[in-house]
Design a binder for these strands. Sequence first.
DNA 1: AAATTATAGTAAGTATACTGATTATCGGTA
DNA 2: TACCGATAATCAGTATACTTACTATAATTT
Lengths: 152, 152
Amino acid sequence: MTDLYDRPGHLARRFQQIAVAIFHAEVAAAGFDLTPVQYAALAEVAVRPGIDQATLAGRIAYDRTTITGVVDRLAQKGFLTRDLSPRDRRARVLMVTKAGEEVLAAIEPAVDAAQRKMLDGLTPEEVGTFLALLKKAINAGNALSRAPLKVG
Amino acid sequence: MTDLYDRPGHLARRFQQIAVAIFHAEVAAAGFDLTPVQYAALAEVAVRPGIDQATLAGRIAYDRTTITGVVDRLAQKGFLTRDLSPRDRRARVLMVTKAGEEVLAAIEPAVDAAQRKMLDGLTPEEVGTFLALLKKAINAGNALSRAPLKVG
DNA sequence: AAATTATAGTAAGTATACTGATTATCGGTA
DNA sequence: TACCGATAATCAGTATACTTACTATAATTT
């Protein structure tokens, strides 16, 4: 039987675990309190003001039901607003507030530092190889996820 | 700013998400109901009968508090027993039951198939490169996680 | 236009994961 | 031996993630 420590599933979880820990540490050290999901959602809404929750979920590859809670907490923190869409009364229109924009700008160095630290053990060349292969594997498996990425 | 889709943190989460979905799909198709954590914990206890929860957590890189719940559910399903240690009355001694051993044996093909599917998009050579780099990155960041791997 | 189907958001329930605190116990030391 | 710092397990609380189901509304078909 294959050793647990060589299994893609085990390694995937551990890498993600480490990535989240680094993100939290860097962001907290900079004085902020955003989680990785909250950051991704907020950044996406900033790029696409007025986006609805389902589209947002597809663009950052999260489940609809998870996004409900994430948006809830972001609204509670005053970083974005959620209003009924005039065009589609089922949908909610999301907008980043001034406070949200300020946080996004201020938090960016910490987020970038975190991304670098996650691959600190690899040489620059290895980083390129690794990310390319990771993306290739993800693309092949995208449809198998409950929350596939939907862009374009 | 770096594109979200090129960020290690985002890619790490997506790969893990896909890996978990594949695991569930394969295991469910084979007629079982074990989660990835539950499988890892059960398999480790099978290899080290009598292990305590803290050591188990360290060997599969999970948080102590998470393992409490995982062991709870495994015990509830009748796959392992949890008894007070005669040597250390703080610790619980874990043992796989006969039912647990049967499940472990029966589930193995599904688990192996899942591991293969996770990297279906890569050539055999790329799989080797990818896993080596993934392990290298994890080793470098291991200490930064709340639940670092503790072996040996 | 009426009926059907699909979609947006939410809610309930379960299972990770994490932080921080508590309890019981152990091991070493004053 | 009495204390004291460390450790095993648990608990409370928060935040992902997932499944399933429900409500309201939109889009499509008949």
